[in-house]
Design a protein around this nucleic acid. Structure first.
Lengths: 411, 411
DNA sequence: AAATTAAATCACTTGAGTTGAGTTATTTCT
DNA sequence: AGAAATAACTCAACTCAAGTGATTTAATTT
């Protein structure tokens, strides 16, 4: 089964009927528990504007299916203490896969977001013929070696370099995966594994991961700047990933930051990605005739090449944060990616003081914070993708072609 | 009655029950008709994924209430020809009000978006004590003098310079309205008029107007650049206005476009608004010791001061369009505002060729287009605000304080 | 030990969408 | 011209799922 990328479905909102209402209400109950933490039926009823009876029925169903568990009663005060409902970690697992040019990262994650197993596969040849067997074998192995009860499989999330929809800027340059051009990755992988597959870009996947299980657990609106090879932006609006009309939203790597700056693969000059990305750092080392070794070590020893790059990257990223704040007005901006935590922290440090923006005011949350999924952000985010659909309420849309583009989107 | 700004409601999606489902399905049916044009019940059923029976029941109800009318049968082919349902222009009217520092514009608009009456009031003193009587009188007069059947009132939309929620950048500078600081405009106006009131900023209101009745009628995702006194951005995502977590999204006037450029009221330097706005044009005239007269005239005669400004504005706006495309990936970017159509067209002309962006590809819609509400864009948009809630399906949210800010939002 | 409070459930009611059969208004075929 | 086919619409019965009100249960307070 191919699971549609949950993005742009298309044209028209669709009507409710009892079945669709129930499925919506199930998601509402699950979301309430995920965001609020374990809660009794009555508490959930208050949160969700449903009656206690309705919540009781739905909770019964979800417990039956293994998605929820009862956690004993909470000592709360007068009255019968509520039976706490929580997401059942053993209710099932998803697999997150990150396919890069020369390696594959796979994680097995349970319903509560705990990593149950992981696997790193060196795979110098990324084309489908070589990759697919590695995936099927890897998944089987993960499920065998996972710690604890590895419940039923709830799907596979895959992160790989684009393009997924219409050709975008990210389809050029060093970030493209050879051999996958023109191939519908989701279908191919679904076929090979026999499971529901969702394909997404690294930044958006990382954002979904942080939203479901990370620092953004109760942040409904945020931007996530992702340091992969290039520079990506994951946008979460009202708790759900935002992808734009054609799936290319958040193409932040190719904002012009230096007029007439370094030429970029995309055809423009002075793109942000040419300065504030891992690729740019690698380039610096290459030009100095050095090999780029472990970044944590380099940071600990205060390597001047790294520090220089940090300064330059921070100088370009700080205005970008203000820009994102002025345009999206998020609750916070999260930095995440394959860089070590200490390096990301150093980067964030160097960005202060941030330029003025609509976010410059009394606030409860830092303007910029680091993600907590570490270097697994993309893979863990990938694993969160299949859950998003079951756990998050949404406005159902009829799949229709989108006007404004020659192609039909969302097949 | 105060109608909440339809923006950020807050925390948690709420559950469905029969009543809420019906109200959702009514909106779905209305939206289907608005977007598809007049259609038969069976056609609507196909569009909305409801059964013909359900649509028939809902349509009956909406006809009963005067929101829809039957328009005879359509000769279509075999089978019984469908009875066309259409939005009933005489089903009701809304009032759109634009309150500026020295004048008030009011329009009376019917359900189909037709302007039934208009009124321009010079009001040099904008404080509440002077403004409120003008509003109540003006509304009464509009409803008396409106052409055709002026049905029941469906609410009032008000556009005025912010701030509405948390203090933002736009609360400083020459765009602020004196006397309204700290006053909940929606409540005050609702009290004075006894009607449902929605308050919004000019750019977002204009976007809603273009979405419901203008060029963006079947564009679900777009950005609207609004030329008021300053420069605003209205963002429509999935057919609904996007305001960000704190209602300050789209603060495009204060993007830095000239490093160390002209100082701005916001505290930064080189803000876009200092170059590409009506205010900047006025400033140029002031500095030349000339009075800014009718812009259409100036354009026809090829006034060099205007042409200069057009060049400079276009030079700064073109990268901004590419920026919006890269971040939001909209179907199109619309330019609208108080500038005459010919001036906006001239501006759009001068922006070609646009920089490369994710929008540079085969497409069915122009990257930039002009709105069709002309200089009434804000007032007409204001009048569309009350309709948005009745006509557009949405995901209902429970109003909860938002984490990430010290204040509780959405009262 | 009795009263109070609140959670959860049972049994019944209600709202609204679905189902399947039946009616009506056209076009197309004979 | 008349019969058959097709499609829109509607009627009546059914079903799903939420709401309502009474009841049970388990704690705290008096």
């Amino acid at each position: 089964m191919v699971r549609k990328r949950n993005g742009r479905a298309g044209g028209l909102a669709i009507g409710n009927n009892p079945g669709r209402s129930r499925s919506h209400n199930r998601r509402v109950v699950l979301e309430a528990i995920r965001l609020h933490g374990p809660a009794g039926r009555a508490e959930i009823a208050r949160l969700s504007h449903l009656t206690a009876q309705a919540v009781s029925n739905i909770a019964g169903e979800l417990i039956e299916e293994g998605l929820l568990i009862e956690q004993g009663r909470l000592r709360t005060g007068r009255g019968q203490p509520p039976v706490q409902l929580a997401v059942n970690p053993d209710g099932g697992t998803t697999v997150g896969v990150e396919i890069a040019a020369d390696h594959i990262v796979m994680v097995l994650v349970d319903l509560a977001g705990n990593k149950r197993a992981e696997r790193f596969i060196a795979a110098p040849n990324a084309d489908p013929a070589h990759t697919l067997p590695l995936l099927t074998d890897g998944i089987a192995e993960l499920r065998q070696n996972g710690t604890g009860t590895v419940g039923r499989s709830l799907g596979i999330g895959v992160v790989m370099p684009g393009p997924f929809e219409i050709e975008g800027l990210s389809s050029v340059g060093p970030t493209t995966l050879p051999g996958w051009a023109g191939i519908d990755a989701a279908s191919v992988i679904a076929e090979a594994t026999g499971e529901a597959v969702t394909v997404e870009n690294d930044a958006t996947a990382a954002a979904v991961g942080e939203r479901l299980h990370g620092v953004a657990r109760d942040v409904r609106d945020f931007c996530l700047v992702y340091f992969g090879v290039g520079l990506g932006l994951g946008i979460v609006v009202d708790g759900r990933p935002y992808r734009g009309a054609f799936g290319n939203a958040g193409e932040v790597g190719h904002l012009t930051v230096v007029p007439n700056g370094k030429p970029c693969f995309c055809g423009n000059r002075g793109c942000l990605e040419r300065y504030a990305s891992l690729y740019a750092l690698q380039e610096r080392f290459r030009e100095s005739g050095r090999a780029l070794t472990d970044l944590s070590d380099l940071h600990r020893t205060g390597d001047p090449l790294l520090l220089d790059w940090l300064d330059e990257a921070a100088r370009h990223l700080a205005p970008m944060v203000a820009l994102l704040e002025n345009l999206f007005d998020p609750q916070t901006v999260i930095f995440a990616g394959t860089l070590p935590d200490v390096v990301i922290d150093a980067l964030i440090d160097r960005m202060t003081p941030l330029p003025l923006s609509v976010a410059s005011r009394r606030r409860a949350m830092a303007r910029v914070m680091r993600g907590e999924s570490g270097q697994y952000a993309a893979a863990l985010g990938a694993a969160a993708l299949p859950l998003l659909e079951t756990l998050t309420p949404k406005l159902d849309m009829a799949p229709v072609a989108v006007k404004g583009d020659a192609h039909a989107v969302g097949s």
